[in-house]
Design a protein around this nucleic acid. Structure first.
Lengths: 219, 219
DNA sequence: ATTCGATGTATCAACCCGATACATCGAAAT
DNA sequence: ATTTCGATGTATCGGGTTGATACATCGAAT
């Protein structure tokens, strides 16, 4: 679902459609080049459903209020218009800034915790917003994905060993098998880290307090 | 395109829709579970375009063609009444066996040599039928794909190093980068093998003539 | 001064997927 | 023996995705 991606981005801060596409491409990397033919209908549908609301003006803070948004989107606006000639006025083009509603937040958490973790995209999207999940659901997501990949690995191995294939198809199947094994090993590392990080309840809080300094920390 | 997959399978031997789906799933592994909502419209479209033709009977060869006379018109009516008519031909269910035409073979080679090698599926499909390509086009296909992955790797690396991401998104991006590197290494092996196997024009034909013995050899 | 590319919203045809319906058949379960 | 169940087989429908296209404004380079 594309709805999850939209709501997840709007969960952090309000923005317009083009910006949603840009972030999906540049930051997440998922939905490599999401089409506007998908994005705008999805936004309209979410608006009709009451999950998002449009605040028809106010691109990038515009200096009226909010010092926080100024710092957040500042690095983005900086490289876009680094001339600093007239940063206050900005552009008054036709742009519809979307904002998530309370209903949309509920919908977001429903989608994020949903059971349908079929494809790689859907899983990657959920993982990108996994910080909004409680640790239990986060672990469940990882293990669900791992089980899926294990099933796929079994069929891949059966196909690689049993059939008689030409060299190109065989190489394709073998490479697919290796990739799946690689994915499973990655998931195992994530699962381990998740188990390690959640159960030890900071036994020595004074010794080494969090030298990782995670940037986004929502809870 | 799904047309390429269909024509590629029919290129080897004629079969019906359900069988096409089964082979795509069990042998190729691409289009993991292709939907009938895609397959049957695609077959109809190919039939309208003259790329395939339907030979309304003949499951698994089963004793030459056998015009079967009246069953052509009454294939629908016959299936509910006929029981003991043909013990050799096995089931007389409603099945439409498709066969590729000369026009379809031309279309197949056009699609196979086409330049649009965007996604992984399209490339995997072409590679699965790469034995039908001349060595030059085969090498070009591999190198086109490698160039795409190299471009993607560059953007992935930029994303991984530049932005400040939470741990899950960062892990996702890093894993994606590793996967892309893995894919490139695989392509390099394929390209090397392709260069090794094509350029040496059997200088010693008597010494060690091709101990690989590929199973399918269509040309 | 004009071209060019990025930004921004929007729509369309074609395509693909998941679900569903209908129908036949072989085999296991009751 | 009959029912149930799963595999085989063709087909359609709604909804979501894509790629292309259109239109428009703006900043910057030629």
């Amino acid at each position: 679902m594309l709805d999850l991606a939209i709501l997840g981005l709007l969960f952090e801060q309000e923005m317009h459609g083009y910006e949603i596409r840009r972030r999906l491409r540049d930051e997440l990397g998922l939905f490599a080049n999401i089409s506007f033919g998908s994005l705008y209908p999805a936004l309209s549908k979410l608006e009709r459903a009451g999950a998002v609301a449009v605040t028809s003006e106010g691109p990038s803070g515009a200096g009226s209020m909010i010092p926080s948004t100024g710092s957040l989107s500042g690095e983005r606006a900086g490289l876009r218009a680094r001339r600093a000639a007239a940063p206050l006025a900005a552009s008054k083009r036709s742009r519809k800034v979307y904002r998530i509603t309370d209903e949309g937040r509920i919908r977001f958490e429903q989608l994020l915790a949903g059971e349908e973790v079929d494809d790689a995209r859907s899983f990657g999207l959920r993982l990108a917003f996994a910080r909004h999940l409680p640790p239990t659901a986060r672990l469940a997501l990882l293990e669900r994905r791992r089980a899926q990949l294990t099933r796929r690995l079994a069929t891949d191995l059966a196909r690689a060993s049993g059939e008689r294939l030409d060299i190109y198809t065989r190489s394709l199947v073998e490479h697919s098998t290796e990739s799946t094994e690689h994915d499973i090993a990655w998931l195992d590392r994530l699962i381990d880290a998740e188990r390690q990080g959640s159960s030890p309840v900071r036994s020595e809080p004074s010794s080494d307090p969090r030298h990782e300094t995670p940037q986004h920390q929502t809870q």
